[in-house]
């Protein structure tokens, strides 16, 4: 465990807790893409399969439980909660996320570390995580300006992945045989997807106006 990874995990934890808190307190999910939340639930479900078989550390198990619990409860809130669901803008959140899931699954069948169920699902979850933010970014483009909680959510998610890249660089130089192209490339692609969002996010911080994304 190094500082980059711990900071990355805590930033990731903060992103889901910020989101859960927002939905729970103001009982609204305006501006939040349900599709992205569903994709994240799938990412965690397919990656944390080993939760009950291999024990790595209390920290690891605890964080996996929190991520699984929070992502599924966010999906439940948006789909089922009688008040929250009314604020879900389903005719704006129209990104056909099956166009994301299937290519990731096919890619995982082609590129993986070992051809076993767990390894293929693990690769699938990495590819899916890289693109899971797309429906949310499309929704932000559509709804133009966003309230700053959603902006913070996307910002924290991007920061978590950027910190993980620093973690991989650190581990590459400190641990022998630490070469994992699948993880690195999908993590890099994911971070690049956030790059333009970061640009507009910092722009809006500078002139501290509402975050306006270009059409």
């Amino acid at each position: 465990m190094n500082i980059f990874r711990l900071a990355g995990d805590l930033t990731h934890l903060a992103s889901v807790l910020v989101l859960l808190l927002k939905i729970h307190t103001i009982k609204s999910c305006a501006g939040i893409s349900l599709k992205t939340q569903e994709l994240y639930a799938i990412v965690f479900a397919t990656r944390y399969l080993d939760l009950f078989t291999t024990y790595i550390s209390l920290y690891n198990t605890l964080m996996k439980l929190i991520f699984l619990g929070s992502s599924f409860s966010i999906v439940w809130y948006i789909r089922k909660h009688k008040i929250v669901r009314r604020s879900y803008d389903k005719d704006q959140d129209t990104f056909r996320h099956y166009f994301i899931v299937l290519p990731c699954f096919v890619l995982a069948l082609i590129i993986h570390e070992k051809f076993t169920v767990r390894e293929v699902l693990w690769a699938f979850s990495l590819y899916l995580e890289a693109v899971a933010i797309l429906p949310q970014l499309v929704l932000l483009q559509r709804t133009r300006n966003i309230d700053n909680l959603t902006g913070q959510y996307v910002f924290l998610l991007g920061a978590y992945r950027a910190l993980y890249i620093l973690n991989w660089i650190y581990r590459y130089f400190t641990e022998p045989h630490f070469v994992h192209w699948i993880t690195w490339i999908s993590g890099l692609v994911q971070t690049l997807l956030y790059a333009d969002f970061f640009y507009y996010y910092f722009q809006s911080m500078k002139n501290n106006g509402k975050l306006q994304l270009p059409a």
């Binding site: 990731h12 790595i56 550390s57 964080m63 991520f67 581990r171 022998p176 045989h177 994992h180 993880t183």
Partner: peptide, 10 residues
């Protein structure tokens, strides 16, 4: 030496 994996990451 055991292959250092990213599987111990979240």
């Amino acid at each position: 030496v055991k292959e250092a994996s990213t599987k111990d990451e979240l």
